[in-house]
Simulated assay, not measured.
Amino acid sequence: MVEDDDDKIIWGAKAIGQEIDRTERQTFHLLERGLLPATKVGDQWTSTRRRLRRMFGGEEAA
């Protein structure tokens, strides 16, 4: 099975912030408050482009 780029896991607040055009600190704040669709694995936050785009209206929800 070939993984779509939108489904690849984005690791860390810095990388997630780059996807949503926010600083690492801004992103970390949003993540800690539960305002972004992300999951914490160990001490790292993870998400996917698809989850982030759905939240911001860039893709219709499936």
Rank of each mutant, 00 (worst) to 15 (best):
V2A: 15
D5H: 06
E24I: 00
M1H: 12
G58H: 12
T23Y: 07
E19T: 02
D21F: 08
I16N: 05
R50C: 00
L31V: 02
W11Q: 05
R25E: 13
V2D: 13
A15F: 01
G57I: 09
K8V: 10
R54H: 12
D6R: 14
D5K: 11
W11T: 09
H29A: 07
L36W: 02
D7A: 08
E32I: 00
F56H: 04
W45P: 06
D6A: 13
M1Q: 12
D21I: 04
G17A: 04
F56K: 02
E3V: 15
T39I: 06
G34K: 03
T46K: 10
R51E: 12
A61N: 11
L52F: 05
G12H: 05
E24R: 14
D43F: 07
P37D: 10
L35E: 15
L30K: 09
I10G: 03
G58A: 11
E24D: 11
E3A: 13
T48L: 06
L35S: 04
D5L: 12
T39H: 02
M55T: 03
I9D: 01
I20F: 10
L52Q: 06
D4G: 00
I20N: 10
R22L: 15
I9P: 00
R51S: 11
K40E: 07
T46Q: 15
F28V: 00
D6W: 10
A13G: 08
G42N: 13
P37F: 03
K40I: 08
F28I: 00
D6F: 10
K14N: 11
I16F: 03
I10M: 06
D7G: 00
R33F: 02
D21E: 14
I16S: 05
D21W: 03
M55I: 01
Q26N: 15
M55Y: 10
L31T: 01
K8W: 01
A13Y: 03
R50H: 09
G42A: 10
Q26A: 15
L36Y: 02
R50Q: 08
E19K: 12
R25A: 14
F56A: 04
K40M: 14
W11P: 00
E19C: 12
R54E: 15
F28G: 03
W11K: 13
F28Y: 13
F56G: 00
R53K: 14
L36A: 01
E24H: 09
E32S: 14
T46S: 07
